Amino acid sequence: MRVRRTVLVTGGTGRVGGQVVARLVGAGDARVRVLSRDPARASVVLGPQVEVVGGDLAVPDGLSAALDGVDALFLVFPSVTADRAAGRLVTTLAERVGRIVYLSAHGVPDDPDGAAEPDGTIMGSHAHVEALIAGSAAEYAFLRSSGFAANTLAWAPQIRQSDVLRWFVPQASRALVHEADLGAVAARLLTDGRPHRGGYHLTGPEQLTQVEQLAAIGAALGRTLRFEEMDSAQAAAELFPSMPAGVAAGIIAGHAAMVAQPEPVTDTVRHLLGRPALTYAQWARDHAEDFTGRQ
Rank of each mutant, 00 (worst) to 15 (best):
Thr279Pro: 03
Ala186Leu: 01
Ala284Trp: 04
Arg5Cys: 03
Trp155Cys: 04
Gly26Thr: 09
Asp68Lys: 14
Asp163Val: 08
Glu229Asn: 15
Ala149His: 05
Ala115Glu: 10
Val32Gly: 04
Leu225Asn: 04
Ile100Gly: 07
Gly17Pro: 01
Asp111Ala: 14
Thr10Ser: 11
Phe74Gln: 06
Ala42Lys: 02
Asp29Arg: 10
Ser146Phe: 10
Val7His: 00
Asp110Leu: 05
Ile217Tyr: 02
Leu153Ala: 05
Leu75Glu: 02
Ala30Ser: 01
Pro109Ala: 11
Leu221Pro: 06
Ala72Asn: 01
Thr81Trp: 10
Leu67Asn: 04
Leu278Ser: 01
Ala85Leu: 09
Phe227Asp: 00
Phe227Pro: 05
Val20Asn: 01
Leu189Val: 10
Thr224Tyr: 07
Ala233Gly: 10
Asp113His: 14
Gly222Trp: 10
Leu35Asn: 04
Val44Phe: 10
Glu179Tyr: 00
Ile122Gly: 02
Ala141Thr: 06
Leu93Asn: 00
Arg197Met: 12
Val7Arg: 03
Ala58Glu: 08
Phe291Arg: 00
Leu103Met: 11
Phe74Ile: 02
Leu272Trp: 05
Ala115Gly: 11
His126Thr: 10
Val164Thr: 15
Ala256Trp: 09
Pro78Asn: 10
Glu139Ile: 02
Val53Leu: 08
Val247Glu: 08
Gln158Ile: 10
Ser232His: 00
Arg2His: 12
Arg33Asn: 02
His255Asp: 09
Arg5Glu: 08
Val177Arg: 06
Ala72Tyr: 00
Ser136Trp: 04
Ile217Met: 08
His126Arg: 11
Tyr140Pro: 03
Leu35Gly: 05
Gly114His: 15
Leu214Ala: 10
Gly11Val: 05
Pro118Cys: 09
Leu73Arg: 03
Gly14Leu: 08
Trp155Ser: 05
Glu238Asn: 13
Arg99Leu: 08
Ala105Met: 06
Ser162Glu: 11
Val7Asp: 01
Leu165Gly: 03
Val101Thr: 01
Ala115Tyr: 07
Val25Arg: 06
Arg294His: 15
Val25Tyr: 02
Thr6Ile: 02
Leu89Gly: 04
Asp110Trp: 06
Pro241Gly: 14
Ala288Val: 03
Ala187His: 03
Gly55Cys: 11
Val90Asp: 10
Ala248Thr: 12
Gly246Ser: 14
Ala257Val: 15
Ala220Cys: 13
Val3Arg: 00
